[in-house]
């Protein structure tokens, strides 16, 4: 039986915002900490580290995930998009840019700590279901904690981008 020795560090290679990244990573480090501490991509925020607050949400292989609930070594071979690259990225950069503009115009952020993840979460909905109702928007955003706004301006901003993209 050919058994590899269990690793405490591993070499990984993946793309982040279109750039190739190759690093040796401690296996216990989660993806959020790796992006922040090793790559200096501090737009991904850490709010709870148990998957509830949503502040570390980013896009992995085209879908949003919690970066605190994924090991950095699990990103091996993946295509990661963080807020720093989301507005210019291949997937739906224009959606993120639209959302950023609407968030700004409507003051849909205060302290800004939830904002990058809120934008990426909203972008997934806008891309998949631009016809979403206000209630569906609220449901989709319900895994992202914002302590500052009343959520309303965020919902307004997302709704506005949805409407402009669904042509309704």
């Amino acid at each position: 039986m050919n058994t590899p020795k269990p690793a405490t560090e591993l070499d990984v290679a993946f793309t982040v915002n279109g750039e190739r990244v190759e690093r040796r990573v401690p296996v216990r480090q989660n993806l959020a900490d790796f992006l922040r501490d090793t790559l200096g991509l501090t737009g991904t925020h850490v709010g709870c580290e148990h998957g509830v607050c949503g502040a570390c949400t980013l896009r992995c292989n085209g879908v949003i995930v919690r970066a605190c609930l994924m090991l950095a070594v699990q990103a091996d071979g993946a295509d990661i998009v963080t807020i720093e690259g989301a507005a210019t990225g291949n997937y739906d950069g224009a959606i993120v840019a639209d959302l950023q503009r609407e968030f700004h115009q409507r003051n849909a952020l205060q302290c800004g700590f939830c904002t990058p993840a809120m934008l990426l979460t909203a972008a997934e909905l806008v891309a998949a279901r631009p016809q979403a109702s206000r209630e569906e928007i609220r449901a989709h955003l319900s895994g992202n904690y914002c302590r500052c706004t009343g959520y309303q301006s965020i919902v307004d901003a997302v709704e506005s981008v949805c409407r402009s993209r669904s042509g309704t």
């Binding site: 058994t3 269990p6 690793a7 591993l10 216990r28 989660n30 900490d33 148990h50 070594v73």
Partner: peptide
């Protein structure tokens, strides 16, 4: 609030996965 140290294995198929779990239980 960081995970404690552990080591990590990535089996290539179910049979290898079973081999691993047999070893570490």
């Amino acid at each position: 609030m960081k995970a404690p140290a552990f080591s990590y294995l990535r089996p290539e198929n179910i049979s290898q996965a079973i081999d691993f779990i047999d070893i570490y239980g």
